[in-house]
Design a protein around this nucleic acid. Sequence first.
DNA 1: AACGTCGGTGGTAACGGTTCCATTTTGGTA
DNA 2: TACCAAAATGGAACCGTTACCACCGACGTT
Lengths: 337, 337
Amino acid sequence: MKKAATIRDVAARAGVSVSVVSRVLNGTGPVAPVKRGQVLEAIEALAYRPRAAARELSHGRSETVGLLLADLTNPFFARLADRVVAEARSRDLQILLMTTQEDPHLEGQALDTLLDRSVGGMIGTPTGHNVERWEKLAALDIPVVFVDRSITELDRVDVVSIENVGSAATATGHLLDRGHTRIGIVSGPLDTTTGVERVRGYERALREHGIERDDRLVRPAPFRGDRGADVVAGMLALDDPPTGLVVANTAQVRVVLRMLSQARIAIPDDLSVVVFDDNPWTELIRPPLTAVSQPIDMLALHSVELVHARMRQKLPPAPRRIRVPAEFLERSSTARI
Amino acid sequence: MKKAATIRDVAARAGVSVSVVSRVLNGTGPVAPVKRGQVLEAIEALAYRPRAAARELSHGRSETVGLLLADLTNPFFARLADRVVAEARSRDLQILLMTTQEDPHLEGQALDTLLDRSVGGMIGTPTGHNVERWEKLAALDIPVVFVDRSITELDRVDVVSIENVGSAATATGHLLDRGHTRIGIVSGPLDTTTGVERVRGYERALREHGIERDDRLVRPAPFRGDRGADVVAGMLALDDPPTGLVVANTAQVRVVLRMLSQARIAIPDDLSVVVFDDNPWTELIRPPLTAVSQPIDMLALHSVELVHARMRQKLPPAPRRIRVPAEFLERSSTARI
DNA sequence: AACGTCGGTGGTAACGGTTCCATTTTGGTA
DNA sequence: TACCAAAATGGAACCGTTACCACCGACGTT
């Protein structure tokens, strides 16, 4: 098995210097049309493909983008990954995938290895910790784009997310409009931006309807584990249980639904439910779920577009915050009280 | 921003040569305990981390494993990716993710870029085409592990998959035992191994019960699109429609269920249904689905373990074919006729 | 006719590791 | 104390690119 051709082989066959080959490869300088032709012919003939590692070493940075997601088990992130990979491909970027499993320690490790790989950019859903490390990336001039969530302390990075406050307000308003006055919300942890923003939207809707917030109905739950189910069970065990529920923590909707089903709580008769994130399975559930549908393709598109542009230095330094609207889909899991 | 430390900086600070540093880094030769200490101290002090690209360039191969999956939108592959990433991490391997979207052309491109990156190994769900390119990888001594499916023409690669024939036979047998004699199956394309093997299992079960195969009830469907729904609709429109159905194409179960629901076919009263692959959502569906549950963690574990071992040359050359058993979960979507 | 200018070109030093090989040091043995 | 093998060390070539720089004609200007 003879080894693969290098740039020198190409140069030799085309009768030019390596500089010329490099130039036709990258369009980084003038080349006479005739020689360009010869070079292209040689490349073709030798099936030459530049070694990414060499390029990366000499150039100091790679065409690889680190994608650091929370958890591929959650359909939201899985679909996001799918779209990001597709968008990246169309821009000739590679995706190095890692997951945090929502664990700051794992996230830290992942960031380190991503750094070793001298990735050209990063797209990630931060756990909220490891602030110094994210800062270091940014300080190294490695473009960082947060998607879905962000870290408030970090103002130098781009952020792409949905309109969390507004979406939560809409979801809550939907229940209020249907006569519900006791509405529970299980959010993400309050040290995540999605967690606080969605609660804020919930509160805004309540306020607009002149209803006071009851702390017992506003409960965060971690992304991992089954805590969301306990939290909801707790609410339902109150003397004055909620008649409406907003599950604003995408990672917990499944366990919440399972618990409700096992407890034989009828939806929407006993409880009206709105969930965050619509995935292809939610419409198969009985009853089909009313949901806030996140435009995942837009999230992916903008994230990749941003890192790409930054890698090409094609953007003013000021950080961008892109908020895309989410769609509210009324199905059959909510009813008038 | 001073740039990151290199191996030479470490050597200088520790008062040794770069060779020594390299040796303590890789444990590739003898080093005096004292110097080892100095080197480690210097590494710590300078926060030195070896550049992956440099290592890769000189060594000719990287610690990155290409993961080429069909489609992250399918929960099966998403969960597989999740586990593979986790297993890879615990072995200090990086995962470069690409998707084929079941498109041979995209698969070809992906294989090319993976080659440029001189990945150290590959784990993939082949579309069934691009045989030459897969062959080339193997010829280049890059360990390739097929997971879930494989390509029959390629006998030099390792394969990890479930017991497809047996699982399909069990699923079909389950229906037969409940008195069904007209059983439909929608499989994957017949140019995929999962497609043919599952049909084979189906046939075996029929044969064992002395029932003849009716071609109109054995229909493949592509992985992409909604074809599976049409196929089932077609079966149900027959004069003698099936009373039982095996959906052996994981990518099509969702659309099939949606179609049945829209057509107001009652499960299991009008039709008993067994599906391939159990994902966390199937138990939320009404009725909860009887399913063949694939041991995804085992698939991931073995795949990663295999590439890893091959990359370390720790395995005899003969290709391994690992078949892990799948679990049959009886829920409520199947009934006695 | 002398003089920039500029398109086109080749030589070569990085980039940051690994690895081979020659050399020095160490320790054990006669 | 001399000697030898084994252990420890350093030097330098190499991996495949990119990018800087020097150079060489040809051409257009004064």
